[in-house]
Design a protein around this nucleic acid. Sequence first.
DNA 1: CGCGATTTGTGCGTGTCTTCACAAGCGCTT
DNA 2: AAGCGCTTGTGAAGACACGCACAAATCGCG
Lengths: 256, 256
Amino acid sequence: MSQHRPPGAPERPVAVPALPDLPEATVARLPEYLRALHNLAENGHDTVSSEWLATAAGVNSAKLRKDLSHLGSYGTRGVGYDVALLIDQIEYVLGLTQRRTVALVGVGNLGHALAGYDGFATRGFRIAALFDADPVRVGEEINGLVVRHVDELSRVATEESIAIGVIATPAAAAQRVADRLVAGGVTSILNFAPCVLSVPDGVDVRKVDLAVELQILSFHEHRKASLTALPAVGEAPLTPLPGNLAATDPQEAIGT
Amino acid sequence: MSQHRPPGAPERPVAVPALPDLPEATVARLPEYLRALHNLAENGHDTVSSEWLATAAGVNSAKLRKDLSHLGSYGTRGVGYDVALLIDQIEYVLGLTQRRTVALVGVGNLGHALAGYDGFATRGFRIAALFDADPVRVGEEINGLVVRHVDELSRVATEESIAIGVIATPAAAAQRVADRLVAGGVTSILNFAPCVLSVPDGVDVRKVDLAVELQILSFHEHRKASLTALPAVGEAPLTPLPGNLAATDPQEAIGT
DNA sequence: CGCGATTTGTGCGTGTCTTCACAAGCGCTT
DNA sequence: AAGCGCTTGTGAAGACACGCACAAATCGCG
């Protein structure tokens, strides 16, 4: 329990002894708040109002207050939130007070980039091992880590107490990698492969599919285009669309 | 409905003339269904039941049926859904019947990987231009595309009718890039930079933050650890955790 | 010491999402 | 042609999330 409270509150014992169970939507927003708070702290602010923080995080202030209220009452009415205290609380709740070790499987195109992504290290995660199935890649050194063969995955995961496994392999290999991660005791997986993983209860999987994001955007593009093509709706384009962006274009205004 | 069947249309009618406005949650799942359907089609299946497809997509079958019902009635009771027809419908709704052009800004660590990611091309997106602010990188050729300077962004975006902008720059540069994309007429942005973008109404932004995903997983790790530390809950580990996977990690098992 | 300005924390109405359960519909078999 | 099994599509209920609006609490100032 790193919770050093140097000058702070000797009154208050350990602040958050029990882990409250937060709504999932709240959990997903806490990292965003945390990032905004770190920015504030770097700029010398020591308190912040919900309004300010909400704007910085891109959410409604009422939502932010409700989210933070789930952690406990760490604000001061009439003043705002203590930035440093709030950072501590959120980091504690998110389990970031201890550095978690990450194993990255698949050092292809994407995996290579992830291995070099410093956003992980700067936010409390340490990539502890790299794996790949391709013998050509095994032995390669990336960012000071040697790529191991995926056959060693389970053993190494156990030995190194890997907390989180990141799968950046082709879809065809992802399930087997997941199985090995689970066999190695890993209970959290971040999956970049475009496929559904089946894992036993108690193992959390989050999926990031880059193409899916584009497809969602594509839908909105499609919808927006079909709206501008039907001027019936009371939706006038605010900005004068550049050029002759065909209003009633059969192929949806791509023609130009 | 406007069911205007253009002379070109063969047997199969164009089916969905008007774009239904779908729940956002449904839109987010459609790409997953689509991927599962393509897998089925490759394996020779021509019909599929909601149960099967739901399993393949990792969702509840009732949810899947309700999602698909928003597109219209394209299933056959007692039989299931026609795979090819459903693919067509989903692709149409998602606006994938036309290839959308993508501009990628920031060819650093992550951007480089995205530029080479074939998952975009295989799913109907074409990366049409690369940009970076670093003069050293400008002129470099990646995957057959020459990196241009970000100053050209607005102009090129307009000229090439870029539909989607992908931001893979450091956070500090992201807002300015977004502004330039908007100025170039781009109305959909996929943001990998860890910051909030402010854009005018009518512009859609989706954010992917790799570190946030890890932090969410970290929370669940933390919660799971605090649960195993309190055996009061009726939650017994199903699988005998392999080896000496520190069940009572001193740093994690708070109370004990 | 009291008052007003300010900001948090939250009760509550509203809307969205999820899930269950079942009627309606389809094809196959007899 | 009628019955039967199977699957879709959907009404309804529950769960969850959101945002308003306001009471409660705190600070600063006269």
